[in-house]
Amino acid sequence: MLTITKYTIKEMIKKRAFLLIAILTVGYLFIYGYGLSLAFHNNNQVINNTPNIAKILLESQLLSAGLYFSNFIIAFLIVLTSVGAVSGDVESGAIYALLYKPLKRHEYVLGKFIGLSIIITVYSTLLFLSVIGLNIAFGTKVYLGLGNVFRALFFFDLGPVVLLSLVVASSSIMSTVNTGVLAVMTYGIAMIGGILEQMGSFFTDATSQGLSNVGIITSLILPTDVIFRKMNAELLTQNTGLSFLAQGPFGGTSQPSPAMFVYIAFYICFLLYYGTRKFEKRDL
């Protein structure tokens, strides 16, 4: 399994896609940083006269937006680099030379998952810290305690791992194209579900409950959105006491319950178990 993990990491690094991702990420951060510098150091009279609390609110939204789109980039990176993790080898025939060897099929699938998880987590961590770093560098007034940042980082990295477990499990069962369609559509459903759930807080009647239920159901299908909102809350709420900073289009008014995180742990384990079981029984 370790050999598969090692060579999965090597493959990602050696392929030109990795270099392209690095260059485009620098481009993304540059544009984001440029936006922050304009927003934070604006000499406009109206903004200068705005109370600090409003400035903090604006800056927290810029921080959340940076993290939201970073999360989005990571999700698409996962889809583009991992949909063929297993199915690509099956379709090309490369799998024949691997699985006649004394290598258990579940070791192969888990080796791929762990290798991709490491790469994605490293990338996700770097992107998260870069966004936070840019905000601090440009003098954000939002309080970012070290504990908040690390807790938020955990949740920021957890989301991609959850999506990756779905992609790898699907890639072990279905074709590359079908896995890609499933991953993109499921991610989209989770995203819209999360937005609808947050919109529910604007209503007080049955509409609110209905929208909230939509969010819960989509979180059960793919809990990436709910994890992101938890990350945002961890980053912006806990120590400041200003819980409304975590609200807005990229944040969340309602927080996932502890049961949801038990479900998330189960979700990852179940998908990997199901994917490997199906792959073990599959004719190649």
Partner: peptide, 20 residues
């Protein structure tokens, strides 16, 4: 079984190896 796989070699017809 893993035991039977330990001592076999196989050259597939539609061979494809990691070309990177």
């Amino acid at each position: 079984t893993i035991e039977s796989k330990r001592k076999i070699g196989f050259l597939p017809e539609n061979f494809k190896y990691y070309d990177w």
